[in-house]
């Protein structure tokens, strides 16, 4: 384990921020590109995970364990969100027979 703790010495913090912003932007693109509600949901999971990784990197950088505890709470929240969101998607499918987000245009002006 001692060798493993030495492994990340040479990776700058900036590269972690860069990686996480790239993955976050990919998630945003996924939300804008796709019309399948499930894939939009998966893109949101991607964004949540990139922020989790960045929180962990900052937590290690500052030597403060609160960041990792926060990631734990975000994961609990994501589990609850997925359960409710997928139930809503199943409900939408039952009512409209598709998961296309363009079908749900009742509120469109």
């Amino acid at each position: 384990m001692e060798s493993l703790t030495n492994t990340i010495k040479s990776v700058p913090l900036n590269h972690y921020i860069l990686l996480c912003s790239i993955i976050f932007s990919i998630g945003v693109m996924g939300v804008l590109l796709r019309r399948n509600a499930i894939i939009i949901f998966m893109s949101i999971e991607l964004m949540l995970n990139s922020v989790n990784l960045l929180l962990t990197a900052f937590s290690v950088y500052h030597g403060d364990a609160s960041g990792q505890v926060f990631v734990f709470f975000v994961m609990a929240l994501a589990a609850a969100e997925v359960a409710v969101g997928l139930a809503i998607i199943v409900m939408i499918y039952r009512n409209t027979n598709s998961v296309d987000t363009n079908v749900l245009n009742r509120l469109k002006w």
Binding site: M1, I8, K9, L13, N14, S21, F24, S25, Y61
Partner: peptide, 29 residues
């Protein structure tokens, strides 16, 4: 999405700190 990425990377360039991520306390996680 690309504009968002450009804005984020631009902010990162402004900060300009590149300290390596160093594990001070091995038992942290």
């Amino acid at each position: 999405g690309g504009c968002l990425l450009v804005v984020l990377v631009g902010c990162l360039k402004q900060v300009g700190v590149a300290d390596p991520v160093l594990l001070k306390d091995p038992g942290l996680g």
